[in-house]
């Protein structure tokens, strides 16, 4: 009883601090200084833990990661070549932004994951490796996501199926453009992304493939990265734009080695 009375001011103070932290972070859109402090504090420990668990689990050797990095690099270049060859005329203006040789891949591996409702992971490369926010992350299968926060040794990647993520895409066959958003509960369940095309006259068929449309300066998404295939067309009879569900190429629950596309 007595101690409860003594605790109450402490409890109130802690609650006020927590609410203040939430408010500041809410205003900054989730990128407040608290996260960078936490990254500095916990980043090295997560590195260490990942090394230990990787050693126990017989994790990827240096040769394998080198090969995977090369694979990622080739994948990015192939995507760029396909974009260039298929839609040369349409993407003439865009090509000025993209330039095939301006990409550099920084390899990293997933060392931690956010729990619960969010779809974010921590990778083992940070701002000391040249990674900044809003850079595209991919692996051998396709688009993974984008970097949303960095610390000296780690970076947080927002996966493409996070509900906060919106990826501009282009149909690989028809060249129609649209937007792809993550479903809220896609981390554990059936990973289905929601596709909305911008053109009302465009047609959607299951099996069509999607690549990233690209952004200015390659941030947050470089163009031409494969994203997924259309599985179900969900266009309502009276709706203005065609919609569909997209199955991503990347298995978001089994992420290992990733590559971060940094612009030189």
């Amino acid at each position: 009883m007595l101690e409860a009375r003594r605790t109450r001011p402490v409890l109130i103070a802690l609650l006020i601090v927590a609410i203040a932290l939430i408010t500041i972070d809410f205003r900054d859109g989730g990128t407040s200084g608290a996260h960078s402090v936490g990254g500095r504090l916990f980043g090295p420990v997560e590195h260490l833990t990942d090394d230990v668990t990787g050693w126990f689990g017989g994790g990827s050797s240096a040769e394998v990661s080198a090969l995977q990095q090369e694979n990622d690099q080739l994948r990015a270049q192939l995507a760029q070549a396909q974009v260039n060859s298929q839609n040369l005329s349409q993407l003439a203006g865009l090509r000025q932004l993209t330039g095939a040789d301006r990409y550099k891949i920084v390899p990293a591996s997933v060392i931690a994951a956010g729990g619960g409702y969010s779809d974010t992971v921590t990778i083992s490369a940070g701002s000391s490796d040249g990674i900044t926010a809003n850079e595209t992350v991919l692996n051998g299968d396709g688009l993974v996501g984008t970097v949303i926060a960095t610390s000296p040794t780690t970076a947080t990647v927002q996966l493409a199926n996070d509900a906060n993520a919106t990826v501009g895409i282009r149909m690989a066959s028809s060249g129609q453009i649209g937007a792809l958003t993550g479903a809220a509960d896609s981390f554990g369940g059936t990973a289905a992304l929601k596709l909305t095309l911008f053109s009302a006259t465009a047609t959607l068929k299951p099996g069509q493939e999607l690549v990233t449309f690209g952004s200015v300066g390659g941030r947050p998404y470089v163009p031409g990265i494969p994203v997924g295939t259309v599985t179900t067309v969900t266009t309502e009879p009276g709706s203005l734009t065609p919609t569909a569900l997209v199955k991503p190429f990347v298995d978001f629950t089994g992420l290992g080695v990733l590559g971060v596309v940094i612009s030189t």
């Binding site: 802690l14 927590a18 932290l21 989730g30 936490g38 990254g39 997560e46 947080t156």
Partner: peptide
Amino acid sequence: FAGGLALDIAPPVSHYAGEYALVFC
């Protein structure tokens, strides 16, 4: 509070800082 705050600010930025600190406290 300490455990929740640690989960809040540790690197995978998954939610607003202070959420779990409030709840766990």
